[in-house]
Every structure is written in structure tokens, then in C-alpha cells.
Write a protein that binds this DNA or RNA. Sequence first.
DNA 1: ATCTGGATTGCAAGCGCTTACATCGACTAC
DNA 2: GTAGTCGATGTAAGCGCTTGCAATCCAGAT
Lengths: 320, 320
Amino acid sequence: MGGDGKARLQEVDRVKRTASQRPSLADVARLAGVSTATVSRVLNDPALVRRETREAVERAVDELGYTPHFGGRALASNRTDTVGAIIPTMENAIFARGLQALQEELTAAGVTLLVSTSNYNAEQEARQINTLLSRNVDGFILIGEARDPEVYARLERRSVPFILVWSWRADCPWTCVGFDNHAAARDVAERVFEFGHRRIGMIAGVCEGNDRALARLNGVRDGLAACGAPLDPRLVVEAPYAIEAGAEAAGRLLSARPRPTAIICGNDVLAAGAMLRCREAGLRVPEDVSITGFDDIDVATLLDPQLATGAPAHPSMRHM
Amino acid sequence: MGGDGKARLQEVDRVKRTASQRPSLADVARLAGVSTATVSRVLNDPALVRRETREAVERAVDELGYTPHFGGRALASNRTDTVGAIIPTMENAIFARGLQALQEELTAAGVTLLVSTSNYNAEQEARQINTLLSRNVDGFILIGEARDPEVYARLERRSVPFILVWSWRADCPWTCVGFDNHAAARDVAERVFEFGHRRIGMIAGVCEGNDRALARLNGVRDGLAACGAPLDPRLVVEAPYAIEAGAEAAGRLLSARPRPTAIICGNDVLAAGAMLRCREAGLRVPEDVSITGFDDIDVATLLDPQLATGAPAHPSMRHM
DNA sequence: ATCTGGATTGCAAGCGCTTACATCGACTAC
DNA sequence: GTAGTCGATGTAAGCGCTTGCAATCCAGAT
């Protein structure tokens, strides 16, 4: 197994290969003096191989700087050790943060994370799912629950497992992890009411294709209705996820007469924008207007005064 | 090409397959009544195929919901239409933003972006590069220039193209895109000096393995030295990328006597933290202390007063 | 001495796709 | 009419790896 004379010859072979091409399983096998099957076993299930043999193979692997060819492996084994995640956007720190954590975890487990973004657009998400499917991902992480049944059907047909993140309902038919946005929003609304506010505005995220935004809006609506102070439709504004949009929405709410005394925002970024605009308008927060956010992202700590935020139901969610 | 009786039989075949497995090129070929080669050509270079044939194939593809098998394609063609990007962290909005843009561009071109993070850790980056190499990415996007020569050697040996982003030097031996951090920082320093500041502190990013942070620190150092007011080493603090760390660093600088009248920060996040701490310490910005940032990220707009920031040399960089 | 069974390894058949090369008509040019 | 072209398609040889199965060897049981 790699005697000296033989080793020389193989050295030559090795040099020849590494010069231009990448080494293959067969090269490793030749160098180690075993069959490709054995090398493969060392790589995938070392326990199947006698220790000496294994060590010889490992040595050869090192020496050649061998790394398995992904395509070959995927073709033969029909798995990719890859999971795909599709998030709305990386610019939302809350998703970026979650991805980061997920990725670290997966990497440690030898799985690669393939990330795509959908820009909060269902059609784009469907396309991304297709792309990832054609890349044979072994599973999916998707945000929220709202999507075309056809998409779910396709996933099931291919029997690719998936889990939904960020939304949660007791009777969700899929595997999902998250908190109950509706309940949390309702909670916020009730608390704002208890604080004495009676004229309350809301800046919601764009609800189309975004069940979280919708759940939060409805939660607030239901909460206030339950308190006997139903949300005035004229005091509801939808705004895309961006500081500037939040500011603009706040501007519209502030021009309502009588002015709302509290503004509930669908997330922290909108809240930040709203706060900015209030400040610009010369209003004091919270003396003149109260503002609440949602998500508790880092950015929020920049604000002065700090945001009151709708806390997720479970502490771990703070890291998602 | 798909007469009626034949179509029936094939329907059966089709159902059988789609029930459990995914359709293959061969299935499409059979349904369309052509060889697999032709189907492949339709998929990869439609111009090679007569229009009628092409349409028949396309119909079959739709009907079966066929998507090519990634592994098979990668194996046969030895490319993956994938580029890998390794960034320090997604939590830095500036990278997240850049990725987002890059990804949109690549997706439009039919290329998939595979993202990994290194946590500003060279060794981790090297590992990630290996992982991506073994996944046969067709190219790399890497941040900055500082890394083990061995890594560059490996990339060249494999002849995988790569480009470096975010750093730029006239005599950088690799392909790089970015702005000259050193020059920009120098510029900031000189401007701060011209503003009349003589006692100037700096909160730099962690320089180890981060050439941008180092270039900025050295730029400031050189700039001030050129003005005849060399940076006092006691007024230099390194801090990791985080608001809290910036605040803490500012705290240390503020306790120096005499207190610096200006603090130059290695990036906007550190600046945000510094500003926060100043405010907490009851100092007015910029009356009592001036603070400058770097990068011009969105977060900065939240601050009151707004940050003076070291603007990148080229407008396009604002999107990186 | 023979048999049984477990441990170790090799053999070889694919996995689904691309692509060089061969084939085949239908034209064009002489 | 014959040869040369060209466009459209098929044939089949892999790409690098995994894995079911068979072969071998050895220890212990009979």
C-alpha cells in the first residue's frame, strides 16, 4: 500500500494531474492502493473500513488535496446536503440575523445553506423555489405561510421537506416555527388602549402576500375592537419595509384631524421611520405621540427614546 | 411526434413516474419522440434545433414539469452556474445590501449565488472557500484582500476565477473592485483637522485580518500626521463591529483627559454606538464632540444629528 | 478438517446529463 | 450525375461518485 518505488511513479501521476485538473476519487484510490469504493467509504462512513486502510486513504486525500466532486456525488447519491432558504430580503436585519444563525448551525452539521430572496413577491418566490428544486436541495426553509397551493403541491409531489418560519397558527397544516403574530399584535393593541389612548393609528407592512403583516394588522384590529375602540380605517396606512416609507406613512397619519395619539407600527423599521417624522414635525415622543414597533431589532437601540416593541412569544425568536 | 395512441401510452408512463420520482431527460425525450441529445440541446442552445422539434420538446417539458437534475448537469458539463461569495457577516447591512444586489443581477443571468460567512475570521473563510470549491462553484466573490497566500495559490491552481470586493489598491495583483479605503480615511482625517480639531480620537474596526479596517486606521493616521497633528496612540481604540462595542469604545475615549473634541469611526455602526454613548454622557454632538462614520448605511439616517460620513470614491459603491 | 458468519474489500452498474462524432437528407455547384 | 455542404438529429461515451452484491479471509464453532 504505497511502497517506495510505487510511490515514486504515483508521485509523477499526481504531479501531472494536480498541474491542470483536479484529482478524482480514482486518483486517490490509486495513490492509496485501494479501490474507489473503499475511498468512498472512508469519506462517507469510515467505520466500514479497517483503520490502517483508512489512514492510508486519508493520507492520500491530504496529499492530493482532494475534495469530492459535488456533481458526481449528487448524481450518485441523489442528495446534496443542501437546504434552500428563501427570505423576502436580506436588507431586513431580522432575516439576515436569522440566516446567519441558521447557517452557522447547518455548516456545523455539514449542510450548505442556499439563500435566495423574493422581495416579498410570491411569484418571484415560486421561481426561486423552482430554481432550488432543480438544484436538488434536500429541504426548504420558507418564510410565512401565505403562498399558492400549487407551490405546496409541487413540494409535496417532489416530497421535499420544508418548514415554515416566522408564522405560527395552532392549526397550520404544515410544519411551522414562529410566534403567533396575530395574538402578539392584539396584545400590543390592548396595551396601547390600556395606556389610555383612544385615537390610534397603524402603519402596517404591505399585506399582499405577507401573512405576518396581515396577521399583525388584523391582530391590532381585533384587539382594539375587543376594547370597544375599533380601528378607524382612515388611520391605517400600509407601507413597504423601509425607514423612508415609515416616515412618509407617519406624515399622513399625523395630518389626520384629530391627530392620533398613538401609532402602532407593523415592525421596527416602520417605527423608526415614524419616529423620525414625528421628530421632524416637532412632536415629542411619547408625550405628544406614542409609537410602538415590532421585532426588536438592533437598529431600535439607536432611537431616542427607545421603542416600545411587541415582544415575540418565545425568547428564542429574538434570534430569528 | 406524439401521435394520439402513442400519447396515451406515454401518459401512463408519465403518471407512473411523476407519482413518485422526478422526470428525467429521457422521459422528456420519450414523450417528445426525440433523443435525449435533442432535448438537451433545446435546453442549452435552442438555436441548434428546428422550430417544430423545439416546440414539441418544450411542450413535453411543461407537461412533465421537468427540471434538469443539477448533479447530472454539473457532472457532465463540469460547470455549475454558481458563484460563491464569502462575506464577513450578514448582520452588517452594507454586505447584506451588496449581496442582495449581486444576487438579483446573477439570478437574472441564470447564475446562482452561494453565500457563506466568515465572521471576520481568516481560517473560517479558508474553510468556507474549500466547501465552495468542493461544490464546484464557477467563481468567487471575496471581501478584501488580506488572506493567506496559500488560499490564493489554491484558487489559482484550480483556476477558479475570483474577484475581490471592497478594497482597492492601484497595485493589487488580483482583480479587485472597490474604493481606496486608505485614501478615503485620509481624506476624512484631513477634513476633521481643517474643521479645527486638534485632539482627535479614533474608533477603528478590528484590524486583524481586515484590510479595510486597517487601511482606514492607517489612512487616518497618515492624514493627521501630514497635517502635523499625529494620532495619539492613546486615543485609538479597536472595536468589533457592533453598536454596543462602539459605545463602549467611545466611553473609553471620552474618559481621556483632555477629552478628544472629535472621534473618527471606522464605520457607521461604530459611529452610531459612539453617538449613543456621547448622548448618554450628556455631551452634545457636534457642539461638544464631533463624530464621523464610514459607509453611509441606512441606519445612519436614524441618528440625530445625522452623521458626517466618509463617502466612497465612486457612487456605485453605495450599493455594495 | 469443515462449516458458519462477520469483517473487509473489490467489482461494476448505474445516477442524468452533455457533447464529439456519425448519420442522413436535401441542396448547391460543377 | 457526382461530389461537397450544411442543417438537423441520433448514437454512445463518458463525467465522478455511490452502493448492492460477490469475493475473500479469518476466527471460532462443530
